[in-house]
Design a protein around this nucleic acid. Structure first.
Length: 479
RNA sequence: CGGGGCGUAGCGCAGCCUGGUAGCGCACCUGCUUCGGGAGCAGGGGGUCGGAGGUUCAAAUCCUCUCGCCCCGACCA
């Protein structure tokens, strides 16, 4: 039996919900706020978000986007302009009705998303084809009055980025939509080490007000799918509602074609669920607050011998661009620190003790499987970087293996239901494209279409009605 | 929003059935010995029992209402 090093963390396999809450609290990522459904993101959690921001922001900038900031409050009349959009969001909008002591003439929505306010501004700013494309992103908070909440995965207020672009035509707007969803896929897989499927949403599942929604979806260890990022082609729905027109080269007035896209702090929840284990978090090196934690072995005259070397090594690592931290506290034993930093998810531990001083080496220990590598001090930087890269890969491969093993294909409803009863997962099954069949699957199995998947081949029959299938969607129970 | 469960020290829990003025483990504080996988011993501090109301000589315990959290469903990044 494996010795349980960290007490009081429920087993991930036995109750993933309890495990999740326990781990994010013990690792000090969040605390509950006084208002229901809201959370405080503590420094250890916010550091992950900052790393996510840094990387994504540079990718947006590389592709020509600029950041701006739009107001938190949106007049009700603005929100009401696009019919589907209002309908989709009105159940979860919070309203400001009083300012100071005065009742407002028009109530103001606390943004659940910013399409309407941004479109209102775009209609003022865009006159000519020369003004296009408009490529703007904002990092912001939004508020949605959610009924059931869970830190990071669904909270009433959350942090995200929302890109809002305007283009001269459909072709260019769709290119933008796809460019972004590919950036998301690349980011989530290569930095967060979470494999995703990417594809189009069904009409039922798409964003309120969009013509097409593309989504990246990740399979969580409990077999449920987490929508990790979305990119919408809005067509001219909003430009018509908000009158965003430009005069084109041919002297004609035309409506712009728009996109919007976003990822949120939900990604942190996905990262925790995907990689964590019974000892706590595992943060992929690319986004970890600390990539290496140095633990000096506090023994004898360690302050004179070990500590200087530990500090020297910490400095070397930081100079070579590694986010490193050294735990110099005297009041805890090395063993305690090992467990503590494992729980907090630091991907690589560096132990330095008397033996290492003698041999001019350090001990690197992986958070993933406790693999040890003894490396000579002169090779420290390159070996550490190599190990971090290996860990990053290992995490992705592990998650990928899980996702692959839990992705099934079936044409038979009974088998579909059995999959949903056992490990759940992604289930690919032919579908005719009719919303009624989509609804029926949901009623009978609780699974929904995550992405519509590939076009069906001729001969594929809809799993519900038996008619010619149009797509082979990925079905799953969603988070 | 429906069904179930739970709110007692910072955290995890016992006490409640059968009312009598609150206890355990961890954490915290002091001291000494320890320190390569959550150290040991000794001493110490901290809660009025989620909140409001009621029954009673007396309420953590019984009753009513209320708020919050968790789990399972219906709705959503």
């Amino acid at each position: 039996m494996e010795k349980k090093l960290v007490k009081d963390i429920p087993k991930k396999r036995e109750n993933i919900s309890k495990w999740y809450i326990s781990v994010i609290r013990k690792a000090d990522l969040v605390d509950y706020a006084p208002v229901k459904g809201m959370m405080v993101i503590k420094p250890s959690g916010y550091a992950i978000w900052e790393n996510i921001q840094k990387i994504l922001d540079s990718k947006f900038k590389e592709t020509g986007h600029q950041n701006a900031y739009f107001p938190l409050l949106i007049p009700e009349s603005f929100l009401n302009k696009e019919a589907e959009h209002v309908e989709g969001f009105s159940p979860e909008v919070a309203w400001v009705t009083i300012g100071g002591s005065e009742e407002l003439e028009e109530r103001l929505a606390i943004r659940p998303t910013s399409e309407s306010i941004i479109c209102a501004m775009y209609s003022k700013w865009i006159m000519s084809w020369r003004d296009l494309p408009v490529l703007i992103n904002q990092w912001a908070n939004v508020l949605r009055w959610e009924k059931v909440t869970k830190p990071f995965l669904r909270t009433s207020e959350f942090l995200w980025q929302e890109g809002h672009t305007a283009h001269k035509d459909k072709k260019e707007a769709i290119e933008e939509t796809l460019k972004i969803i590919n950036i998301y896929k690349d980011f989530i897989e290569n930095y967060l080490a979470i494999p995703v499927i990417m594809g189009q949403k069904s009409d039922k599942e798409k964003f309120a007000g969009a013509d097409i929604t593309y989504s990246v979806e990740a399979l969580m260890p409990d077999g449920k799918a987490l929508q990790a990022g979305t990119s919408h082609y809005l067509g001219d729905n909003f430009s018509k509602a908000f009158n965003i027109r430009f005069e084109d080269k041919d002297n004609k007035l035309k409506f712009v074609h728009q996109t919007s896209w976003g990822v949120s702090t939900r990604l942190i929840g996905g990262l925790v669920l995907t990689h964590g284990d019974d000892s706590g978090l595992i943060i992929p090196p690319e986004v970890a607050q600390f990539q290496t934690i140095i633990i000096p072995i506090t023994r004898g005259d360690w302050k004179e011998t070990i500590l200087p070397m530990a500090r020297d090594i910490n400095k070397k690592l930081m100079n070579s661009g590694i986010r490193s931290y050294i735990d110099e506290r005297e009041e805890y034993t090395p063993g305690w620190k090992f467990s503590e930093w494992e729980m907090r998810g630091v991907p690589l531990r560096i132990e330095i003790g008397p033996k290492d001083i003698e041999k001019k080496q350090v001990v690197l220990v992986s958070r993933v499987d406790r693999e040890k590598r003894f490396v000579p001090v002169e090779k420290l930087e390159e070996e550490t970087k190599k190990f971090l890269k290996d860990i990053q890969n290992q995490l992705f491969q592990k998650a990928k293996k899980f996702a692959d093993e839990n992705t099934h294909y079936t044409e038979d409803m009974k088998t579909f239901k059995e999959y949903m009863k056992e490990g759940r997962g992604f289930i690919k099954a032919p579908w005719c494209g009719d919303e009624k069949c989509e609804m029926k699957i949901k009623e009978e199995t609780t699974a929904t279409i995550r992405t519509v998947g590939d076009k069906a081949e001729s001969g594929n029959k809809c799993i519900v009605c038996g008619k010619e299938a149009e797509y082979i969607p990925y079905f799953a129970k969603s988070y």
